[in-house]
Design a binder for these strands. Structure first.
Lengths: 201, 201
DNA sequence: TTGCTACGCTACGGTAGCGTAGCGATAAGC
DNA sequence: GCTTATCGCTACGCTACCGTAGCGTAGCAA
């Protein structure tokens, strides 16, 4: 997503690939605009301005409005591209899988830049239905791998079937999110270990 | 924070200030301004405008600026008054106390209007140190009763001493907050019961 | 070369908000 | 009833931003 060098063989499934020779100008500018928008999201949250996107990206404001009819359209699209799609591991062992998911999420919460933007989206979701839809998508993306691993473990008989998967997801992700955005305490090994014990015990 | 009635004997902690001509008037307008500001916080979050406060409260904008030098000062003060100060119950039984705290918080998260504003404050806290300080205060207020009940139970020997109170608070409040602001699933009896079982089991 | 499309640039019109100035009105406290 | 701090009102100046218009230019394909 950063470098835009050669890389002739275009990966067909990855959208943000570098613009190869055959790429149209349109995609090139849209790319620059989106990249800058995401960068500004990191810094200013949803309050970013189109003028600033134009200034920093070097793309004329008129060009931005040629591709996105209104401000919110661009910002929503940038928000969708913000968080990576996590995947559910499949080791055949619930304990290992849930541990991996917890450790991974913990690391993401410690380091990923988008974590600074999410409250802005949560806030918008409280009032704006469009933002709520986008946020619901992001949120579901976070919860899905946990849910999948839990359901699979229940099917295998590794986990009691009367446990509600969504509830269990909340008891795992909840404390992690709490530490990142609310109490702002460190998410260290001791903390993740406790969560793992609680989930597998 | 509500009505400021007679109370002739001056509260000793508040510096009475110079015996000027219109102290009563000052407090009356400050009251109206703050009340309106909080109302607008509910509706628009931290993005509220001073002009709107003036319009809706009927207090002139100049008067607002006579009491608060800048916009942020008013908003921060309103934020501080936003959430009620919860108190820790003392029944002599950890199970009963923690259950009461969980049920109470659950009900607050389901109904209290300030829950719609908090993401706005969390977001601001990500970038603005002043907002972070205010939010830290609010957050500590939420966690304190839980922490107190846990520490007391440990002193009484009702709870294992090697458990870190802050960690335990996270595992209780975290899932509740998660449901309110992230997954947006209902916080029902089944959910709180599970948390209570998890905390006391 | 021609023609099409996307792009850059400048300049707008319009809105909203912050914070201030000046002046007359008014209510509190003596 | 007199004094004075406080308030309301109108009118600013300033900045930032949204979104658009018009016109000229650069890339690209036939």
């Amino acid at each position: 997503m950063k470098t835009r060098k050669a890389a002739k063989p275009d990966p067909p499934t990855q959208p943000p690939g570098p613009p190869s020779a055959g790429r149209k100008r349109v995609e090139h500018s849209k790319d620059k605009i989106l990249t800058t928008t995401i960068e500004l999201l990191y810094e200013a949250g949803l309050g970013l301005s189109i003028d600033e996107v134009s200034r920093r990206s070097g793309v004329a404001k008129t060009t931005i409005y040629r591709h996105w009819p209104v401000r919110s359209a661009l910002i929503l699209e940038a928000c969708v591209k913000l968080t990576p799609e996590p995947r559910a591991p499949d080791h055949g062992s619930f304990a290992r899988e849930i541990a991996e998911l917890i450790e991974t999420l913990a690391k993401v919460l410690r380091t990923a830049r988008w974590t600074g933007v999410l409250p802005s989206i949560v806030d918008a979701a409280e009032r704006d239905p469009a933002a709520a839809r986008v946020f619901g998508q992001i949120q579901a993306g976070h919860a899905a791998p946990f849910r999948e691993v839990i359901v699979r473990a229940q099917r295998r008989g590794e986990l009691a079937r009367q446990i509600d998967p969504d509830t269990m997801v909340a008891t795992i992700i909840g404390p992690l999110f709490y530490r990142r955005w609310f109490s702002r305490e460190p998410i260290d090994k001791a903390f993740t270990n406790l969560l793992i014990r609680q989930a597998t015990g």
